[in-house]
Every structure is written in structure tokens, then in C-alpha cells.
Write a protein that binds this DNA or RNA. Structure first.
Length: 699
DNA sequence: GGGCCAATACTG
DNA sequence: CAGTAT
DNA sequence: GCCC
């Protein structure tokens, strides 16, 4: 994460950064030093001849130089002292956590390794304090860290997207920024507040989380990040939100990785004085940017994770929600997902959502916005239309925009179509539908959602059945999935499997099960070749609670002249033998190719549900592009490609190309040449976009 | 009115 | 090639 | 269907 920390111990083989399953009991331990960042993985270093990208050349593009919170510390000695101290601190913490976990599991009382560190204190549970390093007695720091830890809080030396508080006593934004290694306080995550140490002390004394107002580091007005203060002082503070929600998410620990923070807030034009020369800093930051992040297996929770930091919207955000023109100038204006409605938040038609039990979890997406009910109605409409043949595909897609009604940032309940039209992507037609929904009158959805439509929509859920064949089936007289089991409808192999396993395949896969499946496959893969990189992709990598399928990506560093060619075949046959893979849906053209795809069905032995499984092999140089591609989500990918195209690039599964020339019909005239593909970071950089944590790659 | 992401793989 | 999939 |  940060440039100046000790080298990240990256395993040199397998997939670096993935927790060793055998260390299960350790996985919950949180260590906040960069040395223990959950999973940064080295990327193809051999191919790392730094391409001189436009991003680096163009002064308007961000030049991440890494946030070194130690940049201001001129004395190397002090830096070392502090980091050493912090490491020993985190070690103590983890020890005491393990201890206490054991104690708890044995049913014995609480035990303490060190009296000063009582992780069972819960006052600050879920809070994360950034204490920027300062010159001066290290003992003071140590003391503060332990106090926070004793109250159940987390401590970091450097800012990340998950911090909730920054401790700062000097009332100087510029000094603080320097200490944090950020450009402005705007770079801090939404909802993070800067408070004086005294605030912590007072909270401890009071035994409760106090309103921070009296202990803010800066007067509210001085702040560049207005939102910070607004959200924290007005109405319910985020802090109290955490406090309130604590019970519900009690066993979801904060993820230890904040490895996205460096990249997310690293747009920084200035180069602070530091231990290194500017050029050293730069090259170091380049190295940082060569890092990628493996999947976080710990679910995100807490501040900074629930929502993408909106303050850091870039051109891509604009595209994501609007699919609009992403020119640099209208980027800032172009992110008004938030309604500036003045409508009161009392009586809204959402109430009826309860009657329809729409709020209930069915797809794992918690409807946290105020418009979940409406949004789900548009999900329905989208499903409905996507089964219909002859409808304009793009028109259908627009209904997905209904999701925008409930996106983060849309804070007010929508009570009318006119109100919703302020959101980009919502036009007259959608607005009319909204009015129909909120008024309860029978509208298009009511009349068009006939039995036929519903049945066809049902057929469409069968793997291998699209709108065309679903319609055909209906025409032939089929009315239910069971009808199709009679075998008189001429199903293809894949479709037959889709029908046979219909129920299982249409059941979401809990995250834990994805993980188990992945662990099995990874173990099998490593028994074939320990040096293969294997990663789980898709919605799992985006941090979702459940997934529709399991996507696995495989490659191998060719440093020793070997490749992963042939691994796929051995893998699939091995897993088949073990009964983990049960069906093939499609097999690769060439099993020995570096680029190969297998699709099929697997299950956890002996009697797990049947699950869709995709295993993809890709050439090593394409790792980054493939990560982006297979991580998605779909909207994100579309947006990013559109964005790339508008700047004269072309992005696909294999890489980012420059110099692609298209005819009017959109057909490629020339292939262009791939200029970035090894790491995600590279690709984002060339496009001048901040790298996004997978968890934030959703609309 | 034209464009809306991209490119390829497999099945039958 | 059309359809479906990624 | 929506946005230029």
C-alpha cells in the first residue's frame, strides 16, 4: 500500500496473497501494517518494461506517487522506530485476539495477554482510526494505539478507504495532508472525520461515542470536504450509524486489507519532500502500481467499503451511471446521481414494498437505498422484456437504469416520475412507469406481464435457453420446466442439463461455498503445478455475498520457461474423477492452448448443490485485462470500454489497444497494438482513471 | 436520427 | 449460420 | 429508451 513500508512478503509461487487455507484460524487476525496487507500480489515483473503511457506523460493525468505518510519524516531513524513499534503493537493485538478467541471457544472467561490491550472492549468496534506519524516521542503513539485498541478500535498509520477517524491536534489541514501523504482532505473517505485526540479520551471517559462536534480538528467551514462534516454533524452521524448497526453485523470483521487505498487516493500532483529523491519516489510508485489485488475473501463491511467513495468520482463514474459522454469537462457536472429533492422523507409509497415483501433478500443485494422497491419493479420489467423477441435490445437495457433509482447517492425517496427524471438515464417513459407504480394504477407492467411472458421469462432462466428458444418452446406448447423434462422438445446437451438441474442452477451460491469450491480447485491445481496463478473472479471478487456461478482464472508466470498449457485438462479430469465436476457444458477447442475456456457444473462432494463453474486460462501478459474483464460487473465493463473508446483506445479481454481504427460500421480497420494488459493498474493508468477496488466496481 | 462494449467460443 | 454464452 |  504505501511506498515506504517494509517489503510485502509475497509468496513467489501459486497465487500470491491468498490466505493459506491451513491457516484458517489466523485469518481473522487483523494486522494493519502494510506488511500484512491481505493480498497484494506482484504482477508480471519481467514484462514490466514501463511503458510510457499517456497517463505518465500527460500532465493532466494523475501521477500517483504513492501516499507515504512518512514523507515528511526526514529522519530515517524515526521512521524505522515508529514502524517497528507499530509492528510490535499489531503483533500484540493479534496475539491477544487469538488468545481471547481461544479462551472464548473453550468457554473460559476472558483472558488478557496484556492488560493494556483488551480487544474485547467494544466501544470503538467498527471504527478505524488513522494516526498519522509525527516526530516526537514514539511512546506517545504507542500509548494512543493501545488505548484505541483496548476499546475495540482499529489503528492505522496511513489513511485508507476504511478509516472513520483521523487524529489530528494541530488544526492545520496542510500539515495533516502532508503527514497523510494526500493532496487534500478531500481524499479522505466519505464520512471520515478529523478529530483531536482529546475526543478519544473523552469518549473513553464517557464510555460512549460522543458527538464529535466539539473536538473536530478544524472548524467545519474550513474544510474542502464539506460532505464530511455535513454527514457527520447533521442528523444521524455515520459514527452513530455504525454504533447502531453494530449488533447486526457483529461477526463481520473489518477487512484487514485496505490495499486499495493507495491507488484510490493517489492522484497527487505534488511531490512532497521525503526520504527519497523525487525520482526514487516516482520509481517506487511505479512499482506500487505494478501491484494488483487478489480477491478479498473477507467480506467488506464498515465505512469506506459499503459505498464507493463518491468524492473521488472520475470520468468513469459519470459513464457508469449514465453511459454518457465522458469528456473531462463535464465529468464533474456529470455525476448528479443524487437528487436535490426537497420532498420530505415521510409518507412514500415504499410502504407497499412491505406488503409485497419486496424487501426480502432474494438475490443477496441488500436494498439499502430508499427506493429499493421501485428499483426492484424495474428489475422485474427488465426481466419481462428481456424475454421478449423483437423488442429493441437497447430499449430493454434502459430498464436496467431503474437500478439507478436506488444507487448510493440517491438518498431521497422518489415519489414521482418527474422527480426521477432528474437522474440521468431516466426519461419520460421510465418516469411514466414510475408514476404508474407509485400511484398503484394498472400500467404497462400490469398489462404486459401476462402469463405467457412469465412463462417465457421462466424458460429463459434455463442455461442455454435464450429469448428465441424460450419463445419457441412456448409456441410448441411447453408451459413449465417440468414439461421440458419429458424429452420431447429437442433440447441441446447444455439445455438438457440446464433443465435437469434447473433448481440448483438458479439458486444463488453463498460466498462461503464459492470459497470452498475455489479452495478445492486451487488445491487440485497446485497439485498439478505449484506455480500456477489461480484466482476467483466474478461477483465473488467484487465482494458480493453470493454469486450466480464460480469463475476461475488461471495463468502462469513463464519465468522458468514453462506455461500453464495443459493444466486445464488435467484439472478438469482430476476434478471429474473426484466427483467435484459433474457435467461439461462446453469444452475448449484446444485443451493445450494458453487461452482456453471450460464451462460446466460442479458440486461440493458428496451432495452439494450443482453449481455453474467456469475455468478460464489466459496468457500471462493478459492477466490484468482479464482480471478487469472477468471481475465486471457488466455495467462497469461496458462503461470502461466506452470510456476507452472515446479516448481512442479499445479495451477488451486481452488488453488495452491504441491505434484501432474503425469504419463507420464500427468494424475494426486496424487492430492497433496492445499497450497495456499485464496489470489492472496499468490499464487504469493509461486511461487516466484511478484504479478501483473490485468491491467498488458496481454501478 | 444515430449510437449505445467487445470479441470470441461452442453447439447443433 | 443463428443462438447462446462468456 | 435515452442522450446527444
Amino acid at each position: 500500500m504505501t511506498a515506504t513500508m517494509p517489503t510485502v512478503p509475497t509468496p513467489s509461487n501459486a497465487t500470491p496473497g491468498l490466505p493459506d487455507p491451513s491457516l484458517k484460524h489466523l485469518r481473522t487476525v487483523t494486522l494493519d501494517t502494510p506488511a500484512h496487507v491481505a493480498s497484494p500480489i506482484d504482477t508480471p515483473a519481467h514484462a514490466a518494461a514501463p511503458i510510457d503511457t499517456p497517463a505518465a506523460a500527460d500532465p493532466a493525468s494523475p501521477v500517483p506517487i504513492g501516499n507515504s505518510p512518512f514523507a515528511h519524516m526526514r529522519q530515517k531513524k524515526e521512521y524505522q522506530t515508529l514502524t517497528r513499534l507499530f509492528e510490535s503493537f499489531t503483533k500484540d493485538i493479534s496475539k491477544s485476539e487469538i488468545k481471547s478467541e481461544k479462551a472464548e471457544s473453550k468457554g473460559k472467561g476472558r483472558s488478557r495477554v496484556k492488560p493494556v490491550v483488551d480487544p474485547l472492549g467494544s466501544l470503538f468496534q467498527g471504527l478505524r482510526f488513522c494516526i498519522p506519524p509525527e516526530l516526537g516521542p514514539a511512546s506517545k503513539h504507542d500509548q494512543r494505539w493501545r488505548i484505541i485498541a483496548s476499546l475495540g478500535g482499529r489503528v492505522t498509520l496511513q489513511p485508507d478507504t476504511a478509516i472513520t477517524h483521523v487524529i489530528h491536534d494541530r488544526s492545520s489541514p496542510s500539515i495533516l495532508c502532508q503527514q497523510l501523504g494526500i493532496r487534500s482532505l478531500t481524499d479522505l473517505p466519505i464520512g471520515c472525520i478529523c478529530v483531536k485526540w482529546d475526543y478519544v479520551a473523552r469518549c473513553k471517559m464517557a464510555g460512549t461515542i460522543l458527538p464529535p462536534k466539539a473536538w473536530l480538528s478544524f472548524p467545519e467551514t474550513t474544510l474542502t470536504r464539506q460532505a464530511t462534516y455535513r454527514t457527520t454533524t447533521a442528523g444521524s452521524t455515520r459514527v452513530s450509524d455504525i454504533t447502531a448497526s453494530r449488533t447486526s453485523s457483529i461477526n463481520r470483521k473489518r477487512p484487514e486489507t485496505a490495499s486499495d487505498s493507495d491507488t484510490e487516493s493517489s492522484k497527487r500532483p505534488h511531490r512532497g519532500p521525503g526520504l527519497r529523491t523525487a525520482s526514487a519516489l516516482l520509481s517506487r510508485s511505479r512499482r506500487d502500481r505494478q501491484m494488483d489485488v487478489a480477491t478479498n475473501h473477507t467480506l467488506p463491511s464498515g465505512l469506506g467499503w459499503e459505498d464507493a467513495p463518491e468524492g473521488e468520482a472520475d470520468g468513469l463514474d459519470a459513464l457508469i451511471s449514465g453511459v454518457k459522454n465522458g469528456t473531462a469537462s463535464d465529468d464533474e457536472v456529470g455525476v448528479p446521481n443524487r437528487l436535490e429533492s426537497s420532498v420530505g422523507r415521510e409518507a412514500n409509497p415504499d410502504r407497499r414494498g412491505d406488503l409485497f415483501k419486496c424487501g426480502q433478500a432474494h438475490d443477496g443485494k441488500s436494498g439499502k437505498g430508499p427506493n429499493e422497491w421501485l428499483a426492484s419493479k424495474f428489475d422485474d420489467m427488465h426481466t419481462m422484456y428481456s424475454g421478449m423477441k423483437g423488442k429493441n435490445e437497447f430499449a430493454i437495457r434502459q430498464y436496467q437504469q431503474g437500478r439507478a433509482l436506488n444507487m448510493a447517492g440517491t438518498t431521497d425517496p422518489i415519489t414521482s416520475g418527474a422527480q426521477a427524471m432528474k437522474i440521468k438515464g431516466i426519461g419520460q417513459s421510465i418516469a411514466d412507469r414510475i408514476d404508474e407504480f407509485v400511484s398503484g394504477t394498472k400500467g404497462r407492467q400490469f398489462y404486459e406481464n401476462t402469463e405467457q411472458v412469465q412463462i417465457i421469462a421462466q424458460f429463459r432462466k434455463i442455461y442455454g435457453v435464450g429469448a428465441t428458444f424460450a419463445t419457441e418452446l412456448y409456441k410448441r406448447g411447453a408451459r413449465s420446466i417440468d414439461d421440458l423434462r419429458t424429452g420431447e422438445y429437442g433440447l441441446s446437451g447444455g439445455q438438457a442439463i440446464g433443465v435437469e438441474l434447473f433448481d440448483d442452477l438458479n439458486t444463488r451460491i453463498p460466498r462461503a461455498e464459492c470459497r470452498e469450491i475455489f479452495d478445492l480447485i486451487r488445491a487440485e491445481t497446485e497439485s498439478i503445478d505449484k506455480k500456477v496463478w489461480i484466482e476467483i473472479m466474478g461477483s465473488y471478487r467484487r465482494g458480493q455475498e453470493d454469486s450466480g456461478d464460480v469463475d476461475i482464472l488461471i495463468t502462469r508466470h513463464p519465468e522458468d520457461g514453462l506455461t500453464h498449457a495443459g493444466v486445464l485438462q488435467r484439472l478438469v479430469s482430476g476434478l471429474s474423477k473426484r466427483g467435484i465436476i459433474t457435467h461439461d457444458l462446453s469444452i475448449p477447442h484446444d485443451w493445450m492452448a494458453l487461452e482456453a475456456k471450460w464451462m460446466g457444473i460442479c458440486r461440493l462432494p458428496p451432495n452439494g448443490k450443482y453449481r455453474r463453474l467456469d475455468i478460464l486460462c489466459i496468457p500471462f501478459e493478459q492477466w490484468g485485462a482479464a482480471l478487469i474483464y472477468f471481475t465486471g460487473n457488466e455495467i462497469f465493463n461496458r462503461s470502461m470500454r466506452l470510456y476507452a473508446r472515446k479516448r481512442g483506445y479499445s479495451l477488451n479481454q486481452r488488453g488495452l489497444s491504441h491505434g484501432v481504427i474503425r469504419g463507420k460500421d464500427g468494424l475494426k480497420f486496424t487492430e492497433g497494438e496492445i499497450i497495456a494488459s499485464r496489470t489492472e493498474q496499468e490499464i487504469f493508468d493509461v486511461l487516466g482513471l484511478r484504479w478501483r477496488h473490485p468491491h467498488h466496481r458496481r454501478p
